[in-house]
C-alpha cells in the first residue's frame, strides 16, 4: 500500500513540476546553475571512470581470448559494444545516481529541514517547479556526458590494447568498425534520456517529501541511490527488450 502511495505521490509531483512556472529570467539562471552543478561538475569523475573501465574491458577481453583463430580485432569490437550498449549509458548512470542523485536529495532535503521550501511556498512560489524543473532541463544535457564517456571509454580501451601489446592500432580500429549498427547508438541515447529523467526526478522526490532532521536527510540520500538504481536497471531491461529483441 505504501509503495502505491509513493508511486501516486511521485506522479502528482511530476504534474506540479510542470505547472505554475517560475519567472523565466529566474528559471534561466537556475538552469545554468544546475548545468554547472550536475553536468560540468561530473565531467571529471565520468572521464576518469570511463577511461580506465574502457582500458580494463580491453585487457580482460584480450586475456580471455587465447584462441589463435579468433582475430585480435575482437578486442576493439568487444570494447565498443560493451561501452556503447551498457557501460556508458547504464552503468555510468548508476554511478551518477550516487553522485548527482545523492546531491539532489541532500540539497532539497536540507532545504526541507531548514524550512527553505516552506519559505518558497509562503511566498507563493511553486517550489516543485522552482527546484525540480531546472534539474530536469539541465539533465537533458546528460547525453553529452554519456557521449564523452563513450569516447573516453573507447580511447582507454585503445590505449590499453595498443600500449599493452594486446593488439595493433589497426586491429583495434578494425574491431571498432566491424558489424557496426548505428541503431545501437540510437538505443543507447534513448536509454540515456530516460535515465536522465529518472536521475532528476526520483532523487528530487526523495528529498522533497522527506520528513525529519539531518539524520533523515542521510537516509533519504541512501534511499534515493537505491531506488534510482533499481529504476534505471528496470528501465534498462524494458527498453532493451522493446528495442533490441
Amino acid at each position: 500500500m505504501k509503495y502505491l502511495e509513493d508511486i501516486g505521490s511521485y506522479f502528482l509531483m511530476l504534474r506540479k513540476v510542470f505547472s505554475s512556472p517560475t519567472k523565466a529570467s529566474v528559471l534561466k539562471e537556475l538552469i545554468f546553475k544546475e548545468i554547472n552543478d550536475l553536468i560540468i561538475n561530473s565531467l571529471g569523475i565520468v572521464a576518469f571512470i570511463s577511461f580506465f573501465v574502457g582500458g580494463v574491458i580491453a585487457i580482460q577481453t584480450a586475456l580471455n581470448v587465447n584462441n589463435p583463430l579468433i582475430p585480435k580485432s575482437l578486442i576493439g569490437f568487444a570494447t565498443r559494444q560493451s561501452i556503447i550498449l551498457e557501460f556508458a549509458p547504464t552503468f555510468m548512470s548508476i554511478i551518477m545516481a550516487g553522485k548527482v542523485g545523492s546531491f539532489i536529495t541532500s540539497s532539497i532535503g536540507s532545504m526541507r529541514v531548514t524550512e527553505q521550501i516552506d519559505a518558497l511556498e509562503v511566498m507563493g512560489i511553486n517550489s516543485l517547479n522552482y527546484l525540480v524543473l531546472p534539474k530536469i532541463v539541465a539533465l537533458m544535457l546528460y547525453p553529452l556526458l554519456i557521449t564523452i564517456a563513450m569516447f573516453l571509454g573507447i580511447l582507454g580501451g585503445w590505449m590499453a590494447s595498443v600500449y599493452g601489446g594486446f593488439s595493433s592500432a589497426e586491429q583495434f580500429i578494425q574491431g571498432l568498425q566491424d558489424d557496426f549498427d548505428p541503431f545501437h547508438l540510437t538505443y543507447a541515447f534513448i536509454k540515456t534520456f530516460l535515465f536522465a529523467f529518472i536521475l532528476a526526478t526520483v532523487p528530487s522526490w526523495q528529498g522533497y517529501y522527506m520528513k525529519g532532521g539531518a539524520l533523515e536527510v542521510g537516509r533519504a540520500s541512501t534511499n534515493s541511490f537505491v531506488w534510482t538504481s533499481v529504476l534505471i536497471i528496470l528501465t534498462n531491461y524494458i527498453i532493451t527488450q522493446l528495442l533490441l529483441s
Partner: peptide, 29 residues
C-alpha cells in the same frame, strides 16, 4: 501570498544565496 511576509523560526534563508540575493529574492520573483 505575495502580500504575506514570513519570519521562520530558523530564519529559512537560502544557503546558496548571499544576504543581498536573499533579501532581493521576493522582488525578483
Amino acid at each position: 501570498r505575495e502580500e504575506i511576509g514570513m519570519l521562520f523560526q530558523g530564519g529559512a534563508l537560502f544557503d546558496s544565496m548571499t544576504i543581498e540575493e536573499n533579501v532581493m529574492f521576493p522582488l525578483r520573483m
